[in-house]
Amino acid sequence: MIAAHPVIQVTAFGLSSGATFGLLALGLVLIYRTTGAMNFSHWAIGLLAVIAYLYLANEGVPVVLAMLLALALSPIAGIAAYRLVFRKIPRANQVVTILITIGIAQLYASLAAMVLGFKQFTRLPPWLPQGKVSFVGTQLNTTDVVTIALAVGIAAGFLAWFRFTRTGRALRAVAQNREAAMLAGIDDVRSSTIAWGIGSALAALALLLVLPHVAGKQGGLITTFDITPFGTLLIPAFGAALVGGLVNLPMALAGGFAFGLVRELLVLAPKPWSDLRAVAAALLILLLLVLRTERFFVTAQEREALEA
């Protein structure tokens, strides 16, 4: 009975970090499929929302309202990047696109660092209720439970929107066959703008769920590690996206949970194996890359269109 407790606790941990990987991955896949850009600046875009949240909270805005406002503002960063920069690059030039996302990442991360005044640590107030919930006799953090529920709820809502609404269908059409979508009268610039906006909001939500709550009641700290352009959570998010071959949204979400669980459950592994925790994500990603997961989700012809 007692031995079961840590497993449940760690699972909750894993699922909650997995939820954030999943949200990041959803945004990555959405932007990639609709616009052809693999967004290495995803983390930095989300980071700007966290900075906005911090600013508002420090100005005395109630934390939950500050979070909602930050979330509402978050699409600006992504849409600006798309309209001002990515729109101007020919789609075929993938290497240049990647290099530019790296540049944007650095730009936004530097902006964030500047707003924070280049400090080593900045305290972030939490906005989720702090406390414990009892589950099968195990005490779980409310923040973990709410994070999981919120992430799953929003992801489900987003997937339903993508599947059943007119705009969602237009985005899917652009993703599957851009030229045919344009010839059917779908405005590709508008679709790409929407994809960048929603992708940014998903990244912002993921970071707003994690960063202010890493240290429990203390709230969260932003350290120099978090202000890096490719924050540490982006690598598992890429991994999660790869589970869906970079193209399948529900699988990307599932991949997020898988990466979260593996990372946390390794804590329980016996000594030499638990050391693998730091590199587990990297090893999984290598495996996924070698498996070429994308071939399970799209036809060869669609893939060529994406990679062209």
Partner: peptide
């Protein structure tokens, strides 16, 4: 109306 060249369908729909 232009009919797209190659395969002009949305394969996942």
């Amino acid at each position: 109306v232009q009919m797209p060249g190659g395969r002009g369908v949305f394969p996942g729909m």
